[in-house]
Amino acid sequence: MTTSDTAKSDPTPARKFDWIDFLSRWGTLLSLVLLIVLFSFGRPEVFMTLRNMLNILNQVSILGMIAFGLTICLVVGLFDLSIGAMATFGGYFAARFLMELGYESWFVVVLVILAVMALSALIGMLNGALISKLGISAIVETLAMSFVVTGVILGVSGGRTVYATEIPDAFTIIGQGKIAGVPNPVLILLLLGLVLWVFLEHTQTGRNMYALGGNREASRLSGITFSKYALIAMGISGACAALGGLVAGANLGAGRPQGVGDVYLLNAFVAVFIGASTLKPGKFHILGTAIGVLLIGVINNGLSVMGVQTFWQYIVQGGILILALISASLNTVRRT
């Protein structure tokens, strides 16, 4: 029998389609598309309109800013439970500083925003220093810091809200204005997402962060210092949370000393973990987080448009998160 005859009689078996791998990568995205189709059929005159699509993006913009910052922390293997308090911090102190200065000027507003974000980044870097230098649990330390920040806000404010009449219009426009029909918070979200995506995916710092998240000990032996990147990650998380909070304050037209950021804490984690089971299973990344945030927005908006009771929003969100985690874990188990 010749070599050609042997090849013909013993063909290479066709590779079977891997459903688990497919669903672990694309399941969340398919769920998003399916929900959009279902809600569009259910209320076509309301849901699938440009106005409602922009409304969904506007509703999730603040959540997205906070979740993007949290993604950076989780990339290096750190949890940040202080993001809720930091969002309240950003919203209150931006309004408070502008009230105290009393200037109706874009230049002053920009300076105050930059100052608040820098201060928030410093608090985040303090978190990173305590965690990396002293070996404190990130969960416990950031939870403790959230209490400290909340106490500082209440102490400085005396529990008093800074109202719209005390804030310059140049600040409220950030949360309430539009450019070419697109709400400003949506534009800020898109710009922040693009910057952080480039940072993580196309810079050496970002690649080093992924290496630390994958194997901290191997990264240390390669000369990648965990403490340095812990400071960067936690600083970015704090600044992004404050940005989300001050945009929320601008949208509300008030600087509230409590109850602003807490509502975003759990949903931020949900969005990031849903994103980690999208396209790149088991890997935290900005694009995945964006899909997770959008999924939450579509669920909340769609069920509301359909007239479904609010508690179903929590049930559906939790169910999708569980399914996303199951699909990602199945793929991980098969590789080990």
Rank of each mutant, 00 (worst) to 15 (best):
P44Q: 02
A254Y: 02
G307Y: 00
T3M: 15
V186N: 07
S82F: 07
E104F: 12
A268I: 09
T12N: 08
A328F: 11
D18C: 02
L200Q: 14
A118N: 03
A94C: 14
E104W: 06
G102I: 01
G206I: 13
V293T: 03
E45M: 06
T278F: 02
G282K: 06
Q258C: 00
I291V: 15
Q176C: 01
V182E: 05
I224F: 11
E201W: 06
L191Q: 00
F171G: 00
A180G: 05
M117C: 14
I299F: 06
L330N: 11
A118Y: 01
L287S: 03
V162F: 07
M117E: 06
M1E: 13
G91N: 04
I296G: 09
S82Y: 04
W106F: 06
S137N: 14
M1F: 13
S219L: 11
L200V: 02
L279W: 13
W26H: 10
F97S: 09
G158A: 03
M99S: 09
K133M: 12
W19E: 08
I274D: 03
V152R: 08
H202P: 02
W19Q: 07
V75E: 12
P185G: 08
S132K: 12
R96E: 09
A180P: 05
I139L: 15
G302E: 03
M209Y: 08
S219Q: 02
G213S: 04
G288P: 08
T165K: 11
F22H: 07
L287W: 11
A170S: 14
K283C: 04
G135N: 05
R96C: 03
N52C: 00
S157F: 06
T172I: 04
V333P: 00
P11K: 00
F226E: 01
N55A: 11
A218L: 08
V198M: 13
T225H: 15
G84E: 06
T2V: 09
V260L: 07
T28L: 15
I62V: 14
V110I: 15
L63Y: 10
I299Q: 03
M209H: 10
V149W: 13
V298Q: 08
G297Y: 11
V270G: 03
L330P: 08
L279P: 11
F311K: 06
A241N: 05
G181P: 11
L279C: 04
